[in-house]
Design a protein around this nucleic acid. Structure first.
Lengths: 140, 140
DNA sequence: GTAACTGCAAAATATTTGCATCCTT
DNA sequence: AAGGATGCAAATATTTTGCAGTTAC
């Protein structure tokens, strides 16, 4: 695990540091998306706010994680575990936010259907944000 | 126009005040989405920051406007001019954000295709956020 | 050893809350 | 007149920036 994470960092020309390893590990372990606040609170080691901001920014730039659109003003980040290789993100992302437990799922296996755009519009990227009740919560 | 706006406010049990009228008018005139900052800067009259926050919040609660998911940390609001009647929003929204001019379009006439969710997930709402180049910018 | 990364301090920005005053009904 | 809406002040929260010390390679 450790080495796998180090590999990812090295592939992206990033030096392997404590905070980067720990934060990337959090993403690997999490089944959902993480917000800046989650990382600040849930990490066992304590990292500086600023370090977390900078680490997330770096990861986004390198394409290791991506941001997820949300309807409120929060910013979520997630690793696309299954489909996205580093430096090559898919153009389409589907996410599911559970209204009950508030976990955001990255639906890698959901294919996004084509949308008919009005003439003159050129699509580069499509994000789908679904919300409702997730599998875990609907079984309760 | 004025009376139409007053009508909307009255229908939602809101008193017709200067700031509410002006802000709602801005939405009516705009062909895209507006951010808090847009309203603060572009309005001819000067409103208090706080009033704008509260007005937007009230409008969202009443269902007059809705928020648009964005990938960055910005919060956008838009009126659904064609399809949404007050107090009855559609479950599905499609928005297009132009990478060039940064205007967000509310694509009322775009039908959102069905997405196949994994078993156990119950969808309540779907937002599609497309980005690319809009009609105006691709003609330049 | 050097370049890159981190942590601290502080600045800048954004958002929320309380309260007195003013406006709509 | 009464309740709600606004504006101001201030508290809180969030994000950014600069810089000195530290760490990875």
């Amino acid at each position: 695990m450790k080495s796998e994470i180090a590999e990812i960092l090295k592939k992206n020309q990033l030096s392997v540091t404590g905070s980067r390893t720990a934060i990337l590990e959090m993403f690997k372990k999490s089944n959902g998306a993480l917000a800046h606040a989650d990382i600040e609170k849930k990490s066992t080691e304590q990292f500086d706010r600023v370090t977390i901001y900078r680490t997330l920014q770096t990861f986004v730039e390198k394409g290791i994680i991506h941001t997820i659109p949300t309807t409120d003003n929060s910013v979520l980040y997630a690793l696309c575990i299954n489909n996205c290789t580093q430096n090559h993100h898919h153009d389409n992302h589907a996410h599911f936010i559970c209204d009950v437990c508030d976990i955001t799922f990255c639906l890698n296996h959901v294919t996004i259907p084509e949308v008919n755009l009005p003439e003159g519009f050129k699509k580069k990227r499509a994000d789908i944000v679904l919300s409702g009740v997730c599998k875990n919560c609907s079984n309760k």
